[in-house]
Design a protein around this nucleic acid. Structure first.
Length: 482
RNA sequence: GGCCCCUUGGUCAAGCGGUUAAGACACCACCCUUUCACGGUGGUAUCAUGGGUUCGAGUCCCGUAGGGGUCACCA
């Protein structure tokens, strides 16, 4: 057997945003090709002009590039097997349709909608009866000449079984009697997916077809065509679906979040790609957080599962947080800048300083505004916040701590972290209290929040002396301490 | 409904005839700590079900149930 260079493809139709499932299919195609030193190709399947959505081709290009899934050939990057857009390949499909007819694998059909409808059975299903297969050459000639609308159908044997081996699902067999003579060329002259994918995959030298499991049972039909043409069948790798819950597939039709939506929500891109790689595939030795290069290295088909997996945003959020934690402050600021801009603190504080505090407290950039807005927003809050069992503190403790702390803070010549730290700790000692009692109370007093990015010292330093004292006064007044 | 496929904790999952049935997320507890976080340690929780085969079954076979897919001039 001669060594053949692996070629895989991702073939989306331009009908809107690239959803999570599609992205994973692309990712696996990319990983598999790269793992074997092969090429990954992008092909646009736009044979259905009804469903075409303006701008979605660009979204596909941008999303794949943004996610780091780079293709070696495609409409915008070129290649030796173009064009890579199906609507530009009409003539090719027609030429091969003619050849398939000559080889007995397909035939003209002139039946109109009414006749097809009349074939409906009691369940409402209709199945073409091969009526036009038996037209004479002369009849076909005449109808063609007089311009009767037609389609070209696949000629499927009435008996027998179509079998193939899928690298994920194993051996699959479907009886020909359960398949219909599907349409290959529509009356508008465009091919259907059923025909175009076979012709293109062969012409483009695709060695491994990687796609969703919804094609599992129609694949024997495609094999019939490969066989009729005398072409070598590709290796099939079908992928289990990604579900939204145990019953429903994740889909854009339901308005489920797409890759772009998650980026917009502030998830770290690498985390999104990393997470979807793990949905339906588990690498050996348990790796979880991986770079694309590591995924390529570890990718292996026997780690792909057959059963559907449910998309868990919580776990993806955790992964995103892991990526954030290892960023430098500068990287955090630049990658999360858009979200800092949405917050009330933008332009008023040192973002690098905030970044240092935020990194361990945030899992997506989207949480930035809610975490920092209190720096600019301060007002009445629930005094119950002063009560915390573990810290052994309550309102009474606060009434004692706050005035003393206020006096101390007002007397400080410098408001840097170190001074704040030393002085506050000294105060703890003087009051004969526990660290938590003083620190918890003061932190609540100057933030009005139960949870904040950073402790009292960091917050006081960021807020500055004037604002800190103003907030202390407010809190002291609010709880009636003096 | 016919056909194809799937079924290990709440979720992602390892396991490929003999294991105390990994690991991760989530959850809970505790520890650490300059409060919130981070980090650390530990814990709760899974083989859908009934039959076989076998000395032995989560692992193999058959049935049942549940779920998904497909049956378009959509991909």
């Amino acid at each position: 057997m001669k060594e053949q260079k692996v070629r895989t493809r991702f073939a989306p139709s331009p009908t809107g945003y690239l959803h999570i499932g599609g992205l994973r299919t692309a990712l696996y195609g990319y990983l598999f090709a790269k793992k074997h030193g092969g090429d990954f190709i992008l092909r646009i399947e736009d044979t259905d002009l009804q469903r075409y959505v303006e701008g979605s081709v660009e979204i596909i290009y941008d999303t794949l590039k943004d996610a780091g899934i780079l293709y070696d050939e495609g409409p915008d990057v070129g290649g030796d097997f173009g064009p890579y857009v199906q609507s530009e390949r009409r003539d090719i499909y027609h030429k091969y349709a003619q050849e398939l007819i000559r080889r007995g694998g397909a035939y003209y059909c002139f039946c109109d909608k009414e006749r097809i409808e009349s074939l409906r059975d009691e369940n409402g299903n209709c199945r073409y009866d091969k009526h036009c297969l038996h037209l004479s050459e002369k009849e076909i000639e005449e109808k063609l000449k007089s311009g009767v609308p037609y389609v070209i159908r696949q000629n499927i044997p009435e008996t027998g079984t179509g079998s193939y081996h899928d690298l994920v699902y194993g051996d699959i067999s479907v009886d020909f009697k359960d398949m219909e003579d599907g349409i290959l060329i529509k009356s508008d002259g465009m091919p259907t997916y059923n025909f175009a994918n076979v012709v293109d995959d062969h012409l483009m030298g695709i060695t491994h077809v990687i796609r969703g499991s919804e094609y599992l049972s129609s694949t024997p039909k495609y094999n019939l065509m490969y066989d009729a043409f005398g072409w070598e069948r590709p290796v099939y790798i079908h992928l289990p679906p990604i579900m939204k819950d145990e019953r429903h597939k994740l889909s854009k039709r339901n308005g489920d979040a797409s890759y772009a939506d998650f980026v917009e929500k502030g998830f770290v891109k690498e985390a999104i790609v990393n997470y979807i790689a793990l949905l339906g595939w588990s690498p050996k030795e348990n790796a979880e957080k991986m770079t694309l290069a590591e995924m390529v290295e570890k990718f292996s088909l026997d780690g792909i599962s057959k059963s559907p997996s449910i998309f868990d945003e919580t776990k993806m959020r955790w992964l995103s947080g892991e990526y954030i934690k290892e960023m430098s402050d500068e990287e955090f600021v630049s990658r999360g800048l858009e979200f800092f801009k949405k917050s009330k603190v933008y332009g008023k504080y040192d973002l690098n300083k905030l970044a240092a505090l935020l990194k361990t407290r945030v899992e997506t950039f989207g949480e930035i505004p809610e975490k920092v807005d209190f720096l600019e927003e301060f007002g009445p809050y629930d005094p119950a916040l002063f009560t915390h069992k573990k810290m052994k503190t309550d309102l009474e403790v606060a009434k004692k701590v706050l005035p003393a702390a206020r006096e101390l803070l007002a007397s400080l010549p410098s408001f840097d972290f170190q001074t704040l730290h030393d002085e506050l700790m000294a105060l703890v000692a003087r009051l004969g209290m526990k660290n938590g009692q003083v620190l918890w109370c003061v932190r609540v007093a100057i933030s009005g929040r139960e949870s904040t990015p950073g402790g009292v010292m960091e917050l006081a330093e960021i807020l500055g002396k004037e604002e800190t004292l103003r907030r202390m006064d407010f809190s002291i007044g609010m709880i009636g301490a003096k």
